[in-house]
Write a protein that binds this DNA or RNA. Structure first.
Length: 416
RNA sequence: GUGGCCGUAGCUCAAUGGUAGAGCUCCAGAUUGUGAUUCUGGCUGUUGCGGGUUCGAGUCCCGUCGGCCACCCCA
């Protein structure tokens, strides 16, 4: 039996990598004053069709439950967020700064960087229409990437504005029902031959390419960049009007993060969606909002490919997993005494392990080494003394078994 | 969902249509209770699965499942 296509097993190594990513996400989000929330993994299918139309069902992990309800594994968190915010809107002071790390699902053929299941960091600012919110969120996105050890050499956040294009379409007298089609064409323009895009755009091709080829910008985007300059983050961002994003509900600033090498899929993406909460709450609540998401799969791939980021992760994982103490039981008749000491040390919060069954001393030291223990305590003929060995220096000393904790505090607090 | 390429040990990969192998990992040893290196020995395969062609298939053909890539879609 193997796992279902597009689903992952997390053996300890992968689980540690995943948790490292989660830890960094949480750390940086809290640094920015965001609070964590979550919602159900399973939602009524309607929640998604309402926002995206019936075609979305082909992309969903959906089924009929035993109560004849049409349900779907969440493909994203934003509809749930809109529902929750609409329901509890009056309970919170605005603006809301919320983040979450949901596992999301999609029924699609998998490829590299795109599975049927992934974890997706989401951050949203709700109830603030000022551009400062856009800047704060883009800064968060940059700082999340920095937290993994990436520099402006490794990643870039490309920032655009849908409002710019809407103004453009109005100026060109394009009927509103064609806007979405044009935006889609612009979104695809980078990935397909120019002739194909030109065919999609028709008479709009010339003015559109002029904007995309030139240093297209807007006053709003310049303000965003200026504000990021105050934070010292401009080298990570670039105004790029070719970014439109596929979703129809984006209403203002949109942005996407990529690896500079351009080998991977987008690391993160988001934008302003000022009308979505109103739409999803059937008009009950209207709040401006901006949010973005960063997935764990592509991010993990980039970390693995970037030596500095990889080293940083491995160091963090080692610090998290290493043992403080490995107890070597050299004489089985000391096992009971060793277990008493092990329990006492664990009660004090030390990470302690020992051989569950009799084993040769050499093997026990090897295990201690492999588990990353700082200190070995040997229980054997020296009793009632025990032998202490610092596994980094090889230094050994003999101590009475009583009252060892003070000694450990000193040993373990010394720099690695 | 469509098309192309691929599928051999836990991992990375060999094997002209003719007896399925190597390295790494893992496990066990190398005279009494100390981590590395080294040395010795050992384990694991219905060659993804099912059919077919052939005296004979890991190898050729068909199907299926899985993976990768490009579309589609992108939350």
């Amino acid at each position: 039996m193997q796992s279902l296509p597009g689903f992952r097993d997390f053996v300890p190594k992968e689980c540690a990598a995943r948790n490292y990513i989660f830890h960094r996400w949480r750390e940086v989000a809290r640094r920015y004053g965001f609070v964590e929330w979550d919602g159900p993994v399973l939602e009524p299918t309607d929640l998604y069709t309402k926002k995206s139309g019936p075609e979305i069902v082909t992309q969903l992990f959906n089924f009929t439950d035993k109560g004849e309800r049409e349900v779907a594994m969440r493909p994203e968190l934003t509809p749930t967020l809109a529902r929750v915010v609409a329901a509890h809107e009056r309970e919170f002071k605005k603006p809301l700064k919320w983040f979450s790390i949901p596992q999301c699902f999609r029924y699609e053929k998998q490829q590299r960087g795109r599975l049927r299941e992934h974890y997706q960091f989401n951050a949203d600012i709700i109830g603030e229409s000022a551009l400062e919110a856009d800047v704060e969120l883009i800064a968060l996105c940059v700082d999340l990437l920095r937290a993994f050890g990436f520099t402006a050499e490794d990643v870039v956040v490309r920032i655009s504005d849908r409002e710019f294009w809407i103004d453009f379409l109005r100026a060109q007298n394009v009927p509103e029902e064609k806007w979405e089609e044009v935006l889609q064409a612009i979104d695809k323009s980078e990935r397909e031959p120019r002739e194909k895009t030109a065919a999609r755009l028709g008479s709009l091709a010339e003015p559109t390419f002029k904007i995309l080829d030139g240093t297209g910008t807007s006053e709003k985007l310049e303000q965003v960049v200026a504000a990021l300059r105050n934070r010292g983050l401009t080298e990570f961002v670039k105004i790029d009007l070719g970014i439109v994003r596929g979703l129809a509900y984006y209403s203002g600033v949109v942005f996407e993060a990529f690896d500079r090498g351009g080998k991977l899929r987008a690391l993160a993406g988001g934008g302003r969606y000022d009308n979505l909460i109103q739409q999803l709450s059937d008009g009950a609540v209207s709040l401006p909002a901006i949010g973005f998401a960063m997935g764990d799969v592509v991010l993990g791939e980039l970390i693995a490919e970037q030596p500095a980021a990889k080293a940083k992760m491995e160091e963090a994982i080692a610090a998290q997993q290493n043992l403080d103490i490995y107890v070597v039981i050299a004489k089985e008749e000391r096992r009971a005494d060793a277990l008493a000491q092990i329990q006492a040390l664990r009660d004090r919060g030390y990470r302690v392990d020992f051989p569950l069954t009799p084993a040769k001393v050499g093997k026990q030291f090897q295990t201690a080494e492999q588990l990353g223990a700082r200190i070995a305590i040997l229980f054997g003929d020296e009793w009632p003394q025990v032998k202490l060995k610092d596994l980094r220096t090889g230094e050994q000393s003999l101590l009475p078994h009583e009252g060892l904790s003070a000694r450990f505090a000193a040993l373990l607090s010394s720099p690695a």
